[in-house]
């Protein structure tokens, strides 16, 4: 086995290691945690699905998108439209077409449909947005997010407007979350090592050199954007079915901020960075939320004011950008050493 082959094999261990890491996390929480920790684990795994989906585009293309929360929004509503009980829909969402109002799907095809609709939306809007250069494209994705939010908040007969849609089946346990997170990780790893993924990463490193080598930047960006939107759509659907209540503002700036914070802190350059970022930030958020509720230390009760969670995460994000710009993992991937994979003796130079 040549060194190249050994390295290639070693890189295949990355998704397996990440999935194993998440599985250990779920098992540990299941064994030692209380109910609220169990909920936190499920939420974390939903975020892994979202952020790994987000990473497929941002990590490989180097273009920051502010629009992926909109795909989560669309996904959540699509899943609500097809799974809610028909009598509920005739009451709340009077503008739905007949076939949709009568639909009562199982949750799994609903999640897939959520991702598929988000992906189609990404294909159509990305075809316009991704023609722009990097920074302008980022701003256009922001406009896209605002556009979706405006439509969803005002299209009352179909989306319920600013009042929440309630009654979604709450089926998302940590294991369901783990399943989708694992799927996202596998697809992300396969895409990153595919021809399209490698070409896209070449444009990230040097746009001019890549296009001089005959790489069609636009096509690969659009492919990654579409795949990435699929998992954000699924993540949104899972979020809806985790909380049971959805609202357009639940998928707006604060979700965008959280997804970006996780990706930036873990490291935008690698898949492992995305996953580790979600774990680290989720655990920190859980701690801060408990502090906001108040903690009794001896005789004194300490409680952080509401909103300090975002402030601290924002500050942490700025500090990471200043002192460790590539994130915690600095663009490296977790993988077994190449020598182990090949067997030490057989590795030849």
């Amino acid at each position: 086995m040549t060194e190249h082959q050994a390295r290639k094999l070693a890189s295949l261990t990355t998704p397996l290691l990440l999935i194993a890491l998440l599985a250990v996390f779920v098992l540990l929480v299941g064994a030692f945690g209380d109910r609220s920790l169990g909920r936190m684990a499920a939420e974390t795994l939903i975020r892994v699905t979202l952020v790994v989906g987000f990473w497929i585009f941002v990590g490989n293309s180097g273009v920051v998108s502010f629009g992926h929360a909109a795909f989560a929004c669309v996904g959540a509503y699509v899943s609500a439209w097809v799974t809610l009980k028909p009598e509920m829909k005739t009451l709340l969402l009077t503008g739905l077409p007949d076939w949709l109002a009568q639909a009562e799907w199982h949750v799994l095809p609903a999640a897939v449909a959520a991702g598929a609709v988000a992906a189609v939306l990404a294909l159509v809007t990305g075809a316009a947005i991704l023609r722009l250069s990097g920074i302008a494209a980022s701003i256009a994705t922001f406009a896209f997010l605002a556009m979706v939010n405006t439509i969803w908040a005002n299209w009352t007969p179909v989306t319920g407007g600013t009042s929440s849609v309630v009654g979604l089946a709450r089926y998302v346990s940590p294991w369901v979350g783990l399943g989708w997170a694992a799927a996202a990780i596998v697809v992300a790893a396969v895409y990153a090592t595919s021809a399209s993924g490698l070409a896209l990463r070449a444009t990230r490193e040097d746009e001019v050199a890549a296009s001089a080598s005959g790489i069609d930047r636009y096509r690969h960006r659009l492919a990654a954007y579409t795949v990435s939107a699929f998992f954000c759509g699924v993540g949104g659907a899972l979020m809806g079915h985790f909380i049971g209540v959805i609202n357009p503002d639940g998928f707006y700036l604060s979700l965008t901020f959280l997804m970006l914070a996780m990706l930036v802190m873990g490291g935008i350059g690698s898949l492992s960075g995305a996953v580790v970022g979600v774990l680290v930030v989720s655990i920190a958020v859980e701690g801060l939320v408990r502090l906001e509720k108040g903690v009794t230390l001896g005789a004194t009760e300490i409680a952080l004011p509401a909103g300090s969670q975002e402030i601290l995460i924002g500050l942490a994000m700025i500090l990471v950008l200043i002192f460790r710009p590539a994130g915690l993992l600095a663009g490296r991937d977790l993988s077994l050493p190449a020598a182990w994979v090949a067997g030490r003796a057989k590795t030849t130079k």
Partner: peptide, 18 residues
């Protein structure tokens, strides 16, 4: 420029929540 943009987004969140 990407890092700057992300940092300014974080700064905005900090000011708003402040």
């Amino acid at each position: 420029p990407v890092a700057l943009m992300v940092a300014s987004f974080a700064l905005g969140v900090v000011i708003q929540n402040g």
